[in-house]
Write a protein that binds this DNA or RNA. Structure first.
Lengths: 133, 133
DNA sequence: TTTAAATACGACTATATTAGTCCAGTTTTA
DNA sequence: TAAAACTGGACTAATATAGTCGTATTTAAA
């Protein structure tokens, strides 16, 4: 329920590892070998991190990834949003289309849960990826 | 990823409703009708809440549920643990059996994630079910 | 200029979790 | 004794997560 997905775990492991390599580029294979992470899956994650401008990459032989910004500038909140897409802690908050919620106007808990969500997000915003090292 | 399950949502809705009824007992049916929650599912949840001593019940005609303690004595943390079972935000923290984790000793993020988990839990501990009303 | 090592991308499958259903009890009151 | 409620377990369905496969593209080096 309040749980990190493998994607987030693998992201943290990879980002930490890449950060430790300073300017060297690091391949997906190196990380997946070292930590027993399925290669194809990790590759997808790194590609996503690249698209989201957290990593930059070189293709071809001797290619690989490096950080495009320091880890203390990436919050856990940002990482989660970018890897998994923005999600709400309850579905009815996920969309403006309130009419889709068949509990709708009799729903009594939306506002307080919304506040809860904001507090959770704020906590995740204060945690930088660099804290996980 | 950081998201309440339907069980938690339904629990909050139900607890709120039951609390509003003061000393009257409330049936699962009444709540499921009012909020369009599947009856069998809600019934299960209320039974669980009873087993966990959050609700008490009377069987038979005119039976139903009532609170066995005030909502400001039930934290969100407690509710989640009791409804869903204690969970860890990453799997490797869930068990002492570290050997099952095939990343194991090369795993670099366990400690910091553990701290994160504690902070999340602390936040959930400060939120009482009564705050969701 | 060809080969090998790497990223890039999309479709697919498998597994796990969550949500919901069904059915057969038991208890209690009118 | 019938109806309204809780009790409990097994089952199915739906969704989300995790992981795989195949193919294309880029690039450095032999």
């Amino acid at each position: 329920m309040v749980k990190f997905s493998k994607k987030i775990e693998y992201s943290l492991i990879a980002l930490r590892y890449i950060a430790g390599a300073k300017d060297e580029v690091i391949t997906a294979k190196e990380i997946s070998n070292k930590y027993n992470i399925p290669h194809e899956l990790l590759a997808k994650i790194l590609q996503k991190l690249k698209k989201e401008n957290i990593l930059s990459s070189n293709q071809g032989v001797n290619g690989g990834y490096k950080l495009s910004k320091p880890l203390n500038e990436i919050s856990l909140s940002e990482l989660i949003d970018k890897i998994e897409g923005k999600t709400a802690i309850v579905e009815c908050l996920h969309t403006d289309n309130v009419s889709e919620c068949f509990i709708s106007d009799s729903c009594s808990i939306k506002d307080p849960i919304n506040k809860m969500q904001i507090e959770l997000e704020n906590l995740l915003k204060t945690k930088m990826v660099s804290d996980f090292i």
